Simulated scan of single mutants.
Amino acid sequence: MNGRKAGALALTIVAWALRLCGIALAVIVVALSFSGVASRLGLVNLVIDISRAIPSVIAGYGLIATPMGGVFRLDFALMAVLFFLLDYLCQRVARSLRR
Rank of each mutant, 00 (worst) to 15 (best):
residue 89 L to S: 11
residue 32 L to P: 00
residue 57 V to L: 12
residue 11 L to W: 02
residue 43 L to T: 07
residue 89 L to F: 14
residue 80 A to S: 10
residue 35 S to K: 15
residue 3 G to Q: 14
residue 71 V to D: 02
residue 64 I to Q: 03
residue 71 V to S: 05
residue 49 D to F: 10
residue 4 R to V: 02
residue 85 L to E: 05
residue 25 L to H: 00
residue 21 C to Y: 03
residue 57 V to D: 04
residue 54 I to M: 11
residue 42 G to M: 07
residue 33 S to C: 15
residue 78 L to R: 00
residue 98 R to E: 12
residue 17 A to Q: 12
residue 40 R to A: 09
residue 42 G to T: 06
residue 71 V to G: 00
residue 74 L to Y: 05
residue 25 L to N: 00
residue 2 N to H: 08
residue 89 L to G: 07
residue 56 S to T: 14
residue 97 L to R: 03
residue 47 V to H: 07
residue 77 A to M: 12
residue 39 S to A: 14
residue 97 L to Q: 03
residue 98 R to M: 13
residue 62 G to S: 00
residue 29 V to F: 03
residue 10 A to G: 08
residue 15 A to M: 09
residue 89 L to H: 09
residue 72 F to E: 02
residue 96 S to G: 03
residue 93 V to Q: 06
residue 39 S to M: 06
residue 13 I to F: 06
residue 91 Q to G: 06
residue 20 L to A: 11
residue 60 G to H: 02
residue 93 V to H: 09
residue 55 P to G: 09
residue 82 L to A: 15
residue 80 A to L: 01
residue 7 G to I: 06
residue 51 S to I: 07
residue 38 A to F: 06
residue 76 F to C: 04
residue 56 S to Q: 12
residue 76 F to H: 01
residue 25 L to R: 00
residue 75 D to M: 04
residue 54 I to D: 07
residue 86 L to V: 12
residue 28 I to E: 00
residue 65 A to H: 04
residue 62 G to C: 06
residue 12 T to K: 11
residue 54 I to W: 11
residue 77 A to N: 04
residue 8 A to T: 06
residue 12 T to A: 10
residue 10 A to N: 06
residue 28 I to M: 10
residue 99 R to K: 13
residue 75 D to E: 05
residue 65 A to G: 05
residue 30 V to A: 06
residue 17 A to D: 08
residue 27 V to Q: 14
